[in-house]
Design a protein around this nucleic acid. Structure first.
Lengths: 312, 312
DNA sequence: GTCATGTTATCGATAAAATCGATGTAAAGA
DNA sequence: TCTTTACATCGATTTTATCGATAACATGAC
């Protein structure tokens, strides 16, 4: 058994194809096939059922692959130990961030973080929650920054802060007259929503206590994945929307006028650093986590007197 | 990095010598040296300080080796998964047992256990507690059966039963007249003791509340490592000794006459299955554990109304 | 200091392996 | 049925691991 063979079976499991796996491993398909055959022979068990298309792991193969991931992970930690001692993390850090956090949070932390680890190649991927979870499990991402809980036992989530939602209302709206708003107010108003697939859409609907199934009535049907677009819709048209508080950091005075905070307990979303349980690049990820926690307003850090909103 | 390289550095760490490690790995010393050099080069750190004699790991080397043990362990579990699925454990199981347990416990369980795992090569090593702990940590033993607690964070102990101590008294002794004995009685009598290094010696001294430092007065100085010898000494000469209850199982009537049980709470020793935390051959070891628990008298299984005696 | 001894590093040769490109075979889709 | 896609097989080639011999080095005895 060699570590390379373990990498090969993990690649095949990930891509469900010998050809694709070979490409990702930078070897030819016969090489990969041969090595996997040798591994199967040496342990005395078939790992993949090649009669199915696409290939699937056998029963015992599933467990072997799970254990192979663990073994490979532990072997890679040896390199991390060295880098840690040298004090200079190298390699790449692949971060998945949901689109309703990324543009507002990352600019606050990335420059500082990159200065601390100059040799680290940062890769940011803006994905939906679902996609981030999938890629984390497949080992294609190192960590995810997303709204939790995600209720997945394979993942470890470490809450970093609780970001309040705020209402953004057109001056033509009735809500504009109020100093604070409640979820009932929102319900009555016309509401710009993110398109399906964004966890924040679910959270906003939960705030308004609208069921996902029943299409909210007073909602403009304009499918956008961008919080920025929601804001502009309110600016240019009318109605209201709900924004995460970090997104209003660089609003001008005119725009701030249209912000309405929620009555206590204000609705918030829990933002966590999510990894697999036995994760690599711990040093870098833990540092990023600290950097993020330090970068958000103090009042975000406690969830007391707040209403943590789920998205399911 | 290859698994073989990890094996090599672990061997060098274990034997503190390239030559000895090479021998144990069944390769020549240049081969082992080369591979370790390649590993050091690939991770970019020196693992061993060869200027010292015997060789010692560097600071970072210590951590690398610790992690290498983990990685190798996890990779070996892959083979166990296969064997587990086949339902037939192969390979060898190296068991360390202290001499005051081995001859009385093992005959009760080994034949049954070997029938269940016919392909398993059993290796029994009679060692002192100290030696078993050392070999477990070095990975030279798979599990140990010994008296606990041993207070070693690197090891996991799972108590299996609580074995009472009984007194064995010559008919010429005053104690012979009593139906039950107490630790005070023993203190007054002449006592045959095991030689230094046996944990049971410490336990017996603790029962009598004698300090280790002060050499017990009424003790015959005959250094033996065998419980059987203690018994014979009492048989042939006089005085008394303390035996573990399992050792009296095949006593004849005459010998049973000389047994005196302790007054409640009777002194007992805790006998545990000891492994490292992340141990291999789990399947076999767990089965052995069950076999042992099933083989001892029911009354051994609870520690209620008993006085668990340490040996330090 | 010198010598004997034991330990690790280095070297060239050789055996073992991993990999490649070409090709064969079997299954899935048009 | 034909085409396409995917995995297995084969021989050639490159790469790697290992060996035996030897050099370099450290340690302890004298």
């Amino acid at each position: 058994m060699t570590l390379i063979q373990l990498e090969y079976i993990i690649a095949v499991d990930t891509y469900r194809s010998f050809v694709a796996a070979a490409k990702k491993c930078f070897v030819t398909q016969p090489t990969l096939s041969m090595q996997i055959q040798k591994l199967e022979e040496s342990i005395g068990a078939r790992i993949f059922d090649r009669s199915k298309q696409p290939v699937v792991p056998t029963d015992v193969g599933v467990e072997i692959i799970r254990q192979a991931r663990v073994a490979l992970m532990e072997s890679r930690k040896i390199n991390e130990i060295v880098q840690l001692k040298k004090g200079d993390l190298e390699g790449e850090l692949r971060i998945g961030v949901i689109p309703t956090i990324a543009p507002y949070l990352l600019p606050r932390v990335l420059s500082g973080f990159m200065q601390k680890f100059p040799k680290l190649q940062l890769q940011i991927w803006e994905y939906t929650t679902e996609k981030i979870i999938h890629e984390l499990k497949a080992g294609l991402l190192d960590c995810g920054i997303l709204s939790t809980p995600v209720y997945d036992a394979a993942l470890a989530e470490r809450p970093m802060f609780y970001e309040p939602f705020v209402a953004y209302v057109a001056s033509s709206s009735d809500l504009f007259q109020k100093r604070e708003v409640t979820s009932e107010d929102i319900l009555a108003d016309k509401l710009w929503l993110l398109t399906e697939g964004h966890c924040m859409r679910g959270q906003v609907l939960n705030i308004c206590q609208r069921k996902r199934s029943m299409e909210p009535e007073g909602t403009f049907e304009y499918n956008t994945g961008s919080v920025e677009t929601l804001k502009r819709m309110v600016d240019v048209n009318s109605g209201s929307t709900i924004l995460p508080e970090l997104s209003i950091a660089d609003f001008d005075e005119d725009q701030l006028c249209r912000i309405r905070y929620f009555q206590s307990p204000e609705p918030v979303r829990e933002i966590s650093m999510v990894t697999t349980h036995n994760y690599l690049k711990k040093q870098a990820i833990d540092a990023l986590e600290k950097e993020i926690i330090a970068s958000v307003p103090k009042k975000f850090k406690s969830k007391k007197k707040k209403d943590v909103v789920g998205f399911d």
